[in-house]
Design a protein around this nucleic acid. Structure first.
Length: 364
DNA sequence: GCGGAGATGGACC
DNA sequence: CTAACGGGTCCATCTCCGC
């Protein structure tokens, strides 16, 4: 393989995935606005929208919106509770198909993945587009799901391309087309650049991708930090060398909404049983030991805080999670008397492989 | 100066 | 009338502290 061959990267995005999956198993939903929700259980419609089909989107419903708001926009919509176990099952079958077409593969989320097909396409974007077509066909035939695919020279461009034509679309951006492609996009279209960053850039008079591409590096560094500043500029130039690779999870967390707000550590500790149980089971299932345990708190005003503690000996134990979390909850509320928790959660991180103890020989 | 630990904030789905 | 608001993960940065 020549050292500088362009990569052929595909970004595969399953269309309105949760809602499409529901349409699939309940055909009577076809043609209706379908809104898949995460109900918090507080009141009948407290919670947020996880996904909406195109019929619902036409009415102005979109992911992240409060359910109560969505109900006003789509009074005749079908509101379903998310069944993530089911979506995970469907997703893993689709991911297995995608893996077949990959030199390298990286699942990004339940409904998204990158495929590096450089070698099997021998660096050809025509081949890359054909491969995208085959993938779409396979996924439709075997899972009856549509997806949108972007083909480009790196993950950044592939990801942006997959968003151009959807649902059921395919967009190719060759290396030669990158510049023109980026000219048609806004700064906020660059992956990893959200509202806060857009606002900060606008403050400095940087409003377009080409302005960002030619911005002063030192100035960007001052605004966003040593590494992040320059990386913003690279994004604007369409440069992204990050490899397609499967990454191990670095942390697991469980977070829930309380039935009633509280400032009582005791209440949170008793509610922690189930979450600690799930996290301990997860660490055993995934065969990892953890050393860091965190508590997560979201206030009645939706501010979030985290406190964590690292223990000496890696563990997989539920009671260890409870023990440390209890200490952290108590300490936090002693120091923050006015904090009112609306949601809370637990997190485990700082993983190591569970391996047998080192033999005495290795210490000598 | 470097590392780990811990806190915080931004971002994305 | 307004505001309404999930759960999960990653990553960078900053500060502090011991070495």
């Amino acid at each position: 393989m020549p050292i500088s061959m362009n990569r052929v990267i595909l970004h595969v995005d399953l269309d309105y995935f949760y809602a499409q999956t529901e349409e699939l198993r309940k055909p009577e939903l076809r043609g209706k606005p379908v809104i898949v929700c995460m109900f918090s259980g507080r009141t009948e419609s407290s919670g947020a929208v996880a996904a909406a089909n195109y019929k619902a989107r036409e009415l102005g419903v979109h992911a992240g919106m409060p359910i109560a708001f969505a109900k006003k926009k789509a009074p005749n919509g079908v509101f379903l509770a998310a069944d993530r176990e089911h979506y995970n099952e469907v997703s893993s079958r689709v991911m297995d198909i995608l893996r077949e077409y990959s030199d390298k593969f990286e699942q990004v989320s339940v409904d998204e993945a990158f495929v590096d097909a450089t070698e099997r396409c021998r660096g050809s974007y025509i081949e890359g587009s054909k491969l995208a077509g085959e993938i779409k066909k396979r996924v439709l035939e075997e899972e009856k799901l549509t997806c949108s695919i972007g083909v480009g020279p790196n993950k950044l461009i592939a990801k942006m391309a997959s968003g151009v034509k959807k649902p059921d679309g395919m967009t190719l951006v060759t290396p030669g087309e990158v510049k023109a492609f980026l000219r048609s996009k806004r700064i906020s279209d660059l992956h990893g650049i959200g509202d806060k960053t857009v606002e900060a850039l606008a403050q400095k008079g940087i409003k377009t991708i080409s302005e960002l591409a030619s911005a002063d590096i030192a100035q960007l560094q001052e605004m966003f930090g040593e590494n992040r500043g320059p990386s913003l500029r690279e994004k604007a130039l369409g440069i992204d060398e990050s490899p397609v690779e499967e990454r191990e999870k670095q942390q697991y967390s469980r977070i829930v909404t309380l039935k009633e707000d509280t400032s009582e550590p005791k209440k949170l500790i008793s509610e922690s049983e189930k979450l600690a149980d799930e996290l301990a089971a997860k660490s055993i299932e995934k065969k990892v030991m953890f050393k860091t345990i965190s508590i997560l708190l979201i206030s009645d005003k939706l501010e979030s805080v985290a406190r964590s503690r690292t223990i000496e000996v890696p563990t997989q134990s539920k009671s260890e999670i409870i023990k440390v979390a209890s200490e952290l909850f108590k300490e936090f509320f002693e120091q923050n008397l006015k904090f009112v928790a609306r949601r809370f959660g637990l997190r485990i991180s700082n993983f190591s492989e569970p391996k047998k103890q080192k033999s005495i020989l290795e210490f000598s």
